[in-house]
Every structure is written in C-alpha cells, then in structure tokens.
Simulated scan of single mutants.
Amino acid sequence: MRLYHDIVILGVILSLIYYECTGLSPAGLVVPGYIALCLQTPARIGYTLAVVLATWGLSRLLGNVTILYGRRRFAVMILLSFAINWAILKTGLLVHNPGLIGALVPGIIAQEFEKQGIAKSLVSLSIVTGILALIMLWLGIPVFPV
C-alpha cells in the first residue's frame, strides 16, 4: 500500500518537473501516477478515457446554455463524470465493468482537455506516465499485463 502512494507522489513530482520544462500539464498533477498504476488493466484506462471524453463533450454543450468557468466548470466536470459513470453502470451498457480510475481523475483530465486541448494533454500524460512506468519497472514493480 505504501508503494502505491509513493508512485502517486513520484508522479506529482515528475508532473511538476515536466510542467516547468514544457509549460504543458500532463492532464493534472496526480493523474500520471494513477494511470501508471493501472497499466496492467488497459480496459480500465480506456473506460476512464471514454468517460473523460463524454464529460468534456457534455460540459462543452452545457457551456452553450449556461455560464461555466473556473471552479464552477471544474465542479460541473467532476459531477458529470460521476453522473456519466453512474448512468453507464445503471443502464447496463457494459457487460463487464472495468472500473473508473479514481473518483476525481476523469474530471481532472476533462478540465485539462478544456484548458490546453486533448492532443497536448494526452501526449503530455503519455510521456510522464511512460517515465513513471520505466521507474516502476526499474524498481521491480509489475507494470504491464502478463
């Protein structure tokens, strides 16, 4: 359990370094650590990214009919990601629920998509997560599915 927290903290440190060097956020400070810890379950990462895209899209549509900015926009994205996940699970759209990564992670990623764009966010997230994965492999932590 302790190692889990260490990877997330290391992810925050690497995210800060990456941001200072590039000016780009890797989809939030804590996100790369959580993604790196879930590399063994690619379906979970895919499901989370699908919820993120739905959250981002719906928040853009909501922005056409209401004023969304700052903390209000962030709160709406967090709540939308909860609602979308809940709706998917309640309607039975998935035969197997891969699970969402973290409670707040989808809202954080959607916020970064809105701030700096999808491509920049995903590329930055991939780079920092890749570095974390290499560090995890070096430490002997299983990273990829067997």
Rank of each mutant, 00 (worst) to 15 (best):
E20W: 01
G107S: 08
I101S: 15
V128C: 13
A27Y: 00
G57A: 03
L58W: 01
T129P: 13
S121I: 09
L104H: 03
A43P: 06
E114I: 05
V95C: 12
W86H: 09
L125A: 14
V12G: 05
S15Y: 00
L122F: 12
V105F: 02
I127F: 13
G28K: 05
S121N: 10
V30K: 05
T55L: 02
T41M: 07
G23Y: 08
R73I: 09
L132R: 15
I67Q: 12
L100D: 00
V123G: 09
L61S: 03
T48H: 05
L53N: 01
T91I: 09
A119Q: 11
I131A: 07
S81R: 00
K115G: 12
I84T: 07
R71G: 09
T41V: 06
L79Q: 14
T41P: 05
A36L: 00
K115I: 14
F74S: 10
V95T: 13
A119Y: 12
G102Y: 03
L79N: 12
F113W: 06
P42Q: 03
T91L: 11
G28Y: 11
I13D: 02
A43G: 09
A110K: 05
T41I: 08
Y47A: 01
L14P: 02
T41Q: 04
A87W: 15
R73T: 10
I88C: 06
L16Q: 03
L89N: 08
